[in-house]
Design a protein around this nucleic acid. Structure first.
Lengths: 192, 192
DNA sequence: CCGAAGATATACCGATCGGTTTACTTTGTC
DNA sequence: GACAAAGTAAACCGATCGGTATATCTTCGG
């Protein structure tokens, strides 16, 4: 029994290459070479490139959200701090050498039609992240957790873009400071 | 004398196709066909695809910033309102049928290396937009125009991503409401 | 020990990629 | 009217694209 199944190996390599070099720019020859797998095997597990891309994005969603949640909860204890710790978790992410922006924003750039399955799964990922923030906002006891979640989410998106496009590695810290204003506002509404 | 020179025609068509379908996904055959131009002519004006992409991005930067500035100034008069009118101008943009996110965020997704000329011109574009905001902030007389410009810029980036990836057409309005908080704060600092 | 499952490498497919070349036609200028 | 510049269509280049087929080898359960 291998540490990673053939399928997982393929997805793992595809994840790295798609994230680093883009989807259209990454060919199958490169993937099977780095995964140490034959073309037949790849097509045995995935009917087409689209299917591989989708499987890759699903895996990325799983890994990313698990990571953000774990780090967020490791960095904080109280619900209020947790809302801000999400920004610290992003800050850590931006410092990674392999950081190339948000894979789902990148996917939406290459598959721009809203009907495209890759675009749809990207929108779904963003919804799930926002839902997580909303859950934290609820735990913090704010009056309108949905609005706060949308606000913090928008700040996160802005920070990601600023970090990737402009190379501003501290964007998450600025976003965090901005987020604090809205967290404070939302919490004061609860008291009122 | 044609309304558009051959070169302008090529750039115009490339702009549309690159924006709509992405850079790597758009081939030369398609561009010359829609531009009604021979391949020789294209290579007469541009040495390579990279050069065409760069020329396209430069044109986009020019058109986009002119448009945002014009609309912003059309929608507002006083400096303070102008800072917020930038969000209204973006809101208009998001409602366009052909809206496919920010072309420079999209370019950074496909050309992820920070050394890549396409990525560098994208970073430059973002810097120029931020500079415009900073200029407006100065005119409004805020104490620290640079900080406010960075904050408003981050909100704009977030709104663009939210509009494109998640299809939230009202993201600019939410961002505007958030921006108002920081504009107010910056202006009160001036008075203090 | 044998046979099916699943892996492998490799050749192949038509299409398209970015890019070049050739030969012909239009166009504007002196 | 001649001539150079710039345009055209189309063939062509090697490489790579996503995807298929073939033939061989490994693995492993009955």
């Amino acid at each position: 029994m291998p540490a990673l199944s053939k399928r997982d190996m393929i997805v793992s390599v595809a994840l790295k290459l798609f994230y680093r070099n883009g989807f259209n720019a990454t060919g199958f020859e490169r993937i099977i070479k780095e995964a140490g797998v034959s073309k037949k095997t790849l097509y045995n597990h995935f009917r087409s490139k689209d299917e591989l891309v989708l499987a890759t994005l699903r895996k990325r969603d799983e890994l990313f959200r698990n990571n953000i949640m774990r780090e967020t909860e490791r960095l904080s204890s109280a619900p209020r701090e947790r809302l801000l710790a999400i920004f610290d978790a992003h800050h850590q992410w931006f410092q990674e050498k392999e950081f190339s922006g948000c894979m789902f924003i990148n996917a939406s750039a290459e598959f721009s039609s809203h009907d495209d399955p890759c675009h749809m799964i990207s929108a779904e990922h963003k919804r799930l992240v926002r839902d997580y923030i909303c859950g934290q906002a609820e735990q913090a006891g704010v009056k309108d957790p949905d609005t706060l979640a949308k606000q913090l989410n928008l700040l996160l998106e802005g920070a990601i873009v600023d970090a990737h496009v402009s190379g501003n590695k501290d964007s998450a810290l600025m976003a965090k400071a901005m987020a604090d204003v809205f967290v404070e506002k939302a919490l004061s509404q609860r008291i009122a």
